[in-house]
């Protein structure tokens, strides 16, 4: 199961959409905190983004990815693997990749805000 997660992740990390999504989220969170003086307003804007963009992209992208991975799944069902572990690994791989993108965005304010407080 770990092996399949590894290969799903390898495939996803080379995927342009995941990279673009990560960059987009980073740009948004960066601009939200730099354009506003008030970090609490920034956090509020970030909340809106988390509530709208993240679930939307996660659902749409995962659907498209699984649909396009037909040939990968076809290749693996002929191998001695449990169906459950196959689907769980695809799920885990997808969630890990999307969580990674999301965590980058969450971590940015955490590192950024202490700096801001020190300046005041």
């Amino acid at each position: 199961m770990k092996k399949i997660i590894k290969y799903v992740l390898l495939d996803l990390l080379r995927n342009k959409i995941v990279l673009a999504y990560t960059v987009l989220l980073l740009v948004i969170s960066f601009s939200v905190f730099n354009l506003e003086d008030n970090p609490s307003k920034g956090v509020l804007s970030l909340l809106n983004i988390i509530l709208i963009i993240v679930p939307l992209v996660s659902i749409v992208f995962s659907t498209i990815y699984v649909y396009n991975a037909t040939e990968f799944i076809e290749l693996l069902v002929a191998q001695p693997l449990k169906r459950v572990s196959l689907w769980l690994s695809i799920f885990a791989g997808l969630s890990l990749a999307l969580c990674f993108a999301f965590l980058l965005v969450l971590l940015y304010p955490f590192f950024y805000m202490p700096l801001l407080n020190q300046e005041e």
Binding site: Y7, T70, F72, L75, P80
Partner: peptide, 25 residues
Amino acid sequence: DWQYRQHIGYMPQTGRYPENMTIAQ
């Protein structure tokens, strides 16, 4: 059951593989 498939080698009619992977991978 799934373990029995370890005894089988299957060559599909049209080989479809993940586009992004290399042969070695």
